[in-house]
């Protein structure tokens, strides 16, 4: 076991960082906010922590906390700025935000180290810090999927107008999604630069957005379980695919594309759908009522989806 640990230390560290990154994109997605700002917050966290530790010798956890607060404030401001946007426009505004962060990093002079980035960020972050923070993130996000808060997030995503009619401030939930995403992304970024002791603009570009997105696509955006699954898969998949030699990146691409096209809910979506079908098959129809499908036949009004999308 300790041999395995030593041999795969980098991957084990990356797994926990990846989980936090994936959660930072999953949280807004689940709330119906099509935002990739988590990748930008990752950049903010990575650079702010690295600078704080490098220039002031601050303890790691304090640096992580401060950069987390910075990213939450930035997330809130971003959320306020783009509050009136929806769908693709919001997605692209947040992609632009991410890329602006990386351009700032390139042009930050001595502070950010320009194109080469920062080196020698020595810190005392251990694997226990990684596990602890990742668990904290998971528990926090899992809570938002329970009970009243969970239902309300579902309502904000599926039908904002309905959500308002039952007293939910859609605006507040959306802003909260930006803030939480900012915190999670920032912690992921902080941990990355502190564990690897280096950060450069190439770590936070368009490819980071694609990585975070692929984790969510394959894992599933509806639950933290999907984000964790996706993060684990895409941390361990590339080395496993090394057996394919030259083809490994192509295989990787095929997996992502197939998931995006044919499995919109990701692996978690398949699991939850199967679980639902199982309970549905076991259950008896209500007594004294005609079976639902027979009633439905007698009525010509379009059912379900057609009504909702109107």
């Amino acid at each position: 076991m300790s041999d395995f640990y030593a041999a795969n230390l980098v991957l084990i560290q990356s797994t926990f960082i990846g989980i936090l990154l994936a959660l930072s994109v999953q949280v807004p997605m689940r709330a119906g906010v099509f935002s990739f700002a988590g990748a930008g917050s990752y950049g903010i966290g990575a650079y702010v922590s690295a600078i704080l530790v490098l220039k002031t010798g601050m303890p790691s956890l304090l640096a992580i906390l401060i950069s987390g607060i910075v990213a939450m404030v930035v997330g809130l401001l971003l959320g306020l700025l783009v509050a009136h946007l929806g769908g693709l426009y919001l997605a692209m505004a947040t992609v632009s935000f991410d890329l602006i962060v990386s351009v700032l990093a390139i042009n930050g002079g001595d502070l950010t180290g320009g194109v080469t980035g920062l080196f020698g960020v020595l810190s005392d972050v251990t694997i226990f810090h990684l596990i602890g923070l990742a668990l904290l993130g998971i528990v926090g996000v899992a809570l938002t999927e329970r009970g009243r808060v969970g239902r309300r997030v579902d309502a904000v995503r599926d039908d904002p107008e309905l959500a308002q009619s039952v007293g939910i401030s859609v605006r507040r939930y959306r802003l909260a999604a930006f803030v939480v995403s900012g915190l999670l992304g920032s912690v992921a970024g902080s941990l990355n630069s502190l564990v690897r002791s280096t950060i450069s603009p190439s770590d936070i570009g368009f490819s980071l957005i694609v990585l975070a997105l692929t984790m969510i696509i394959v894992g599933g955006a509806q639950s933290w379980k999907g984000a964790v699954l996706g993060a684990v898969i895409f941390t361990w998949l590339p080395p496993l695919l090394a057996g394919f030699g030259q083809l490994q990146h192509v295989v990787y691409g095929v997996i992502v594309a197939t998931a995006a096209i044919f499995v919109p809910g990701g692996l978690y979506g398949i699991y939850s759908e199967a679980r639902y079908r199982r309970t549905r098959a076991k259950r008896k129809p209500p007594q004294g009522e005609a079976p639902a499908h027979e009633q439905a036949l007698a009525i010509s009004v379009p059912n379900g989806d057609a009504g909702r999308s109107a």
Binding site: L88, V250, G253
Partner: peptide, 29 residues
């Protein structure tokens, strides 16, 4: 497969990003 227009729009964006990985990977290789 999409439930409504909004999810279609979203999945098309994501699907496009996913599909784009394949030619990119070949050329990079």
């Amino acid at each position: 497969r999409a439930r409504n227009r909004n999810t279609a729009e979203r999945q098309i964006l994501i699907g496009g990003i996913g599909v784009a990985i394949i030619p990119l990977a070949i050329a990079q290789e």
